[in-house]
Amino acid sequence: MDIMTGVVYPVAGLVGLYIFVSLASLIWEGIDRKLVARMQRRVGPPLLQPLYDFFKLASKETIIPNTSNFMFRAAPVLSLATAIALLAYTPMGFEPILTSKGDIIVFIYLLALLSLFKILGAISSGNPYAKIGAAREAAIMVSREPAMMLAIFAIMWRLGKLGIEKPFSMSVFYQHNIWEIGTPMSLVGALILLYVFIVWLASEIEVGFFNIPDAEEEIAEGLLVEYSGRYLALFKLTKALKAFISASLIVAIFFPWGISGYLGLTDYAATIADLLFHTLKVFLLLFAVQSIFRATTGRLKITQAVDFLWKNVFLASLLGSLLIAMEVIM
């Protein structure tokens, strides 16, 4: 492997992907706000509003509280860096840039690390509201991840039985998908897991029921209460990226079909066509999970949300995984 294929192309791909996903995810936010406004018979902001917000925040004065420590300033940068690193492991309609066997663990780890940096940044501000928000974020995080991990490991293990070269890697989904097993039990299992993933996505991007750590009305913006200016802009961007990445995971698991094959495209054109089609699917998924869910439901209390995630979603994940695994086990 020479330096071009080993280093330069992946880096170039990552940079390109980063620019594209930043724009796409911010534009999605604009679409989301517009759609929710339309649902409530308002006009809503222009589609590019999140971009304007971003630039405005970036140009504003950044205030550092005097009770804060070094992590307050490091956390936004670290979490954006983690999000960018995560892009290299995210399936985007084609195999991730840095795919290797077992990279699912890297994906889950980096996704959790994003939240961890946000929590660290929040508690580093010294603000008690932020601390409450951080405690809630931690509680939600611990509750939501096991359901997702169980489901994704079950699916990957099952797909691994169909014969693939890199088990437990994100590239699995573009070789086999969950629907092609085709037996009734696996279909039911897959549908249950789809439910699990959708709730997981809602709790990951904190909308609807799960808009708890940042709850404006209760604890004054919670986690991000002390953040302003540049750092807030970084956090907003990270949040948008995270929504896109989390939705990409679900799209890759459940709806991995590309269009380049049908259009007869090859090479770069195929990649770009798949990326655009993938983005469309992500937007559709986010429309269902983010916009509708956000417009139609209020938030739960933290105890209710934790209960819901363990007693409902985790059990569903267990059931779905068992159904998926059953044919192989028996």
């Binding site: 009770t67 420590n69 508690i123 580093s124 010294g126």
Partner: peptide, 9 residues
């Protein structure tokens, strides 16, 4: 422990 260390001084 980290929660304590990074908290309000």
């Amino acid at each position: 422990v980290l929660y304590t260390f990074f908290g309000r001084p």
